[in-house]
Write a protein that binds this DNA or RNA. Structure first.
Lengths: 229, 229
DNA sequence: TGATGAACATACTACCGAGTATGTTGTCAA
DNA sequence: TTGACAACATACTCGGTAGTATGTTCATCA
């Protein structure tokens, strides 16, 4: 209930003039977060040592512990940063007026592109959710985690509403809303596992990949026309 | 290149009469594998200690190390057991004659039900694939892992052929075969993450869940009818 | 029936990694 | 210019864990 309170807000305005000193500090913090995200992605949470993160920065533990009180807190900040990116990416489109399908497609596209562009952070988010589901982390850190999971849950609701509207409009068909939601996010998130950049890859190449993912999800949400077997 | 050579074959015939002594031994081994799979599922590979596995059996390290030379080998055996289960489940249907769609649906259904029934082992397989992709494990264990990944690749080909046939027959439409394959397996495997048994759940309840997953995958493989946006 | 070995348990070592305590350097403000 | 503090680096502690070395028990077989 403190210390991490308004971190997100500060990051948002980080680019605004805050004096050179603060900018340097936040730049160093951001560097650590990026390095940590990459390490967590490559080795997982438990197998990533603080020394690993420091080494990938050409630094030592001292630098990390100067900015973050513990490994769990560092991880939590990476998690939060990843969620912030997602939220800011889809937020502009959540209130697009009109039918559900085009809005859903826009949100889904932005989401998938975000998975590709910020893969290390999104993998960390995934790891964090997995850890929470199996009840890792101490009771103390549990509190921080619960807030982050709530954050994620809120993000999920952005899609949930559009899913429901889409079902009413007949573009989506599914029995269990919960399962459909799981399957949809599983599909949209999957690039964090199998995507890796190709040499000479352009922006439209990435969008083509994202489009195929979104098409798959859309087809999945519509389900089979008639039910064989 | 020894000691684990014909383990799989032996497990297959484990139920046959091999003398009481051998049955007891393999039973103890199987108990360890089950316990290990559950532990790996609950805490991941790195965070699972041999003592954890032993404790969940009401035993000590001695028992584990008597049957498995190392933690990595124990994990590899869990991996192999999971893949064995999958292969034996879908193998009877891979050569079903006729059009691709019904065969694909049967294979997919069996696969999904298998994910639900043997979730701990399948999570271990997932963890193993993740570990391999980021290059964990020592060069020595790498050899064993490569064989297991080859095994998994072979399993994937069972579906690949049917996917191609389905595309030719017009029931599936996708640009990139590799991506379609990833998305399909991502969907079919996803219950290992979000499924958890409900009280009083019947066999047909599980099949209803599996059907919804297969429907989603089928719709995804067919893609959108016309491509909006 | 005594010896042998499988199937464990117990006790120990060696190392790694999170966290801490304490230096060191550069910068800014008075 | 000097003192204070931020931003690190260095050097340590200490708990946990993989792996090992050594008992112990019980069944089987010669």
């Amino acid at each position: 209930m403190s210390r991490t309170d308004n971190r997100a807000d500060r990051e948002v305005v980080a680019a605004m003039s805050l004096g050179v000193r603060e900018q340097v500090v936040d730049s160093s913090r951001a560097d650590i977060l990026r390095a940590a995200a990459t390490c967590f992605m490559e080795r997982g949470y438990a197998s990533t040592s603080i020394d690993d993160v420091a080494r990938s920065l050409g630094a030592t533990k001292g630098r990390i512990y100067h900015h973050f009180p513990s490994k769990a807190d560092l991880f939590a900040e990476v998690f939060r940063a990843g969620m912030d990116m997602n939220y800011q990416a889809v937020e502009p489109y959540r209130h697009l007026p009109g039918p559900a399908l085009p809005r859903w497609r826009k949100m889904a596209m932005v989401h998938v592109v975000q998975m590709i562009d910020t893969k290390p952070f999104q993998r960390a988010v995934w790891i964090g959710v997995e850890m929470h589901l199996r009840g890792a982390t101490t009771p103390a850190q549990r509190e921080v985690f619960n807030e982050l999971l709530e954050y994620r849950s809120t993000y999920g609701k952005l899609f949930r509403e559009t899913l429901l509207q889409g079902r009413e409009e007949g573009v989506f068909r599914f029995d269990d809303m919960s399962i459909a939601n799981q399957l949809m996010f599983m599909t949209l998130n999957s690039p964090i596992f199998w995507y890796s950049p190709r040499v000479g890859e352009t922006r439209s190449d990435i969008e083509a990949i994202a489009r195929q993912v979104v098409d798959f999800a859309q087809g999945g949400l519509r389900g089979t026309q008639e039910n064989p077997t």
